[in-house]
Amino acid sequence: MIDASGLVKMYGDKVAVDDLSFEVKPGIVTGFLGPNGAGKSTTMRMIIGLDAPSSGVVTVNGKAYAEHRAPLHEVGALLEAKAVHNGRTARNHLLVLAATCGISARRVDELLDLVGLTDVASKRVGGFSLGMGQRLGIAAAMLGDPATLILDEPVNGLDPEGILWIRHLLRALAREGRTVFVSSHLMSEMALTADHLIVIGRGRLIADVSVADFTRQASSDTVHLRTPDAERLRELLVGPGVRVTVMSQGRLEVVGLTSDAIGDIAAAHMIPLHELVPHQASLEQAFMTLTHDSVEYQPTEVAAS
């Protein structure tokens, strides 16, 4: 459980995070989305107290992170792949962190096994690929069997197999009742992994919405149809919130009605349909539209229904 309220982070005159409030709930994967430079990493660093907020408060499981007596059991964080000393071996890196709160070497070995680094455990991390570094970071995050996981762009540098593995791991962690907070700048990745989305742009909250709602909104875009009785159908469909455009002879584009509703209306009036095609904007497009608009105008809450 992460609770941020009114978080602000200024770097000189530049506002990196601007009055950000949100809640991350246990038992689900919450995606933290935003374009590069939106303030995701800064926000995550503030959650675990690496950066101090200019104003506002953020708590983890009810307390400021630094107030927890067993911090690694409260939060495991993967903040950047290279929060390691290149000269140390993978196993020693984990042992050094484990030692701060008495986690056993057995636990370290179990986690090396989980992330698939057992074979290179005694190799120095300077020679690791980005993907291996990410796996080591994930093992480090899980050392204390934490109730909350904060992972900043965990799929960066992973191959497709690794990405799939992370996806399964995150879902499994959430299923165990943990709070899982994952940042990404890829909407498509989050659509597959997350249950809930917190979207920010230029440090401001743009949307706090379930993935299901976001997907529905993105996909209720336009429907293309073809009918021999285009004029009559157009008149039947037009109404408040519905826009119908005649594309060419017998072709209509409808915005504001689902293909189901159009099909039903046509059937009720005995109008034959030769084509009925919903055009879903891709999630990526929807995300870009959302963040683009919101960085230029006022942030708008996307109502969760």
Partner: peptide
């Protein structure tokens, strides 16, 4: 499903810094 190793409650109680 991924088998995530977890700590025993006894171990967790002793994770203080």
């Amino acid at each position: 499903s991924i088998d995530i190793p977890s700590l025993s409650t006894d171990e967790i109680e002793h994770l203080l810094v």
